[in-house]
Simulated scan of single mutants.
Amino acid sequence: MPRILIVDDHPLFRLALAQAVRNVVDAAEVVEADGFEAAMAQLRAQPDTDLVLLDLHMPGSHGLMGLVTLRSAFPAVAVVMVSAHDDPNVVHRALTYGAAGFVPKRTGLDDLQGVLRAILDGELPAPPPAATTADDLQDRALAARLATLSPQQLRVLVLVAEGLLNKQIADRLGIQERTVKAHLTAIFERLGVRNRTQASLLLGALSISDPARFPLPDDTSITAG
């Protein structure tokens, strides 16, 4: 029985997506989380989750950084991004940073069914084409560097970008301040930056502007059926 975690901060859309998943995946166990930290807690409790449907724009996820963090901590779990922001460049970037697929919130039931079944059957989408632009090259280089960080180092990096001081980070993560400093030394070296400001700017490259909130799907969307 596949276990699918839906992560979206909009309760009505979360409900609509859960209903759609139950319609298209036989005997699926559907679990919901209303934020990124809640999703991580769910995955720590159930690391054998098969698939995460992750909203791109959500408090705590920092755009594509949420995807990177989740994939680092739970590499065996497939992550499909779900977003109203379905610009081809955004889709391309999500795949570059490790998404197993991308589902626009406008997706109809038949297409959603195809994506879910393919992912659960282990049929991953074709990788993004070879980098042809400076932005592509930058994304691939950053993705490779972020992949060298441990899950805990990624958490430290996110908190640095949020402006927390070392002591605050230590308190948040329940570790010693000297451990935070050791993590930062490793982070700076692996990312090729010299200080917190440069690290924060680098992380900012993963942010994606949130479009206007997408209205709840109508009967031609994933709520159909």
Rank of each mutant, 00 (worst) to 15 (best):
E29K: 14
A16F: 15
L142D: 04
A27P: 00
N166I: 08
I175M: 15
G174N: 08
P151Y: 10
L56V: 01
R172L: 11
Q113N: 14
A161P: 07
V24P: 01
T133E: 10
A212M: 07
V160L: 15
I187L: 12
P129F: 00
H85Q: 09
L53N: 03
L165K: 15
A73P: 05
D86M: 04
A99F: 12
A84P: 08
G225S: 10
Q168W: 13
D121P: 02
L201S: 04
L184G: 05
V158T: 02
H62L: 08
V31P: 01
Q176R: 15
A16K: 08
G192C: 12
G225W: 02
A141I: 00
R22M: 13
R22A: 12
A78E: 02
Q168P: 10
L173N: 11
P75R: 13
L56E: 06
A205N: 13
G163K: 10
F188G: 06
V82P: 03
A16T: 09
A131L: 00
R106N: 08
K181P: 10
T223W: 02
P47L: 11
P59I: 13
P104F: 05
G163R: 13
S61A: 03
P2A: 13
L137Y: 01
T96W: 05
V193Q: 09
S83W: 11
L137R: 03
E32W: 10
S207K: 06
A131K: 00
P211R: 04
A199P: 10
P2E: 02
A28P: 04
L12V: 04
M65F: 11
S209W: 01
V77N: 12
A100N: 03
A100M: 00
G101M: 02
D110L: 14
L116T: 06
P129M: 01
P125S: 12
S200M: 09
H183C: 10
V24F: 02
F188M: 06
D218F: 13
R71S: 05
I4P: 00
R190S: 12
D121F: 05
L56N: 03
R117Y: 04
V24T: 05
A99M: 07
E177T: 15
R3T: 15
I208P: 00
L154W: 04
T49Y: 03
G66D: 11
A20V: 03
R178Q: 15
A131V: 00
F188W: 14
Q113I: 06
R3Q: 15
L203I: 01
V68A: 09
V77F: 12
P75K: 08
E162M: 07
A199D: 08
L54A: 02
G225P: 01
I222A: 04
Q42K: 12
G204A: 07
A94T: 00
P47F: 12
R140P: 02
Q153T: 02
I6V: 13
A126I: 13
K167W: 12
A18G: 09
S72P: 07
R71T: 05
V80F: 07
E177S: 14
T107I: 13
S83C: 09
R22D: 10
L165V: 14
L120K: 09
R172W: 09
N89M: 11
S207R: 07
S150A: 13
G35I: 06
S207T: 06
G122N: 04
T223G: 06
K167E: 15
R178K: 14
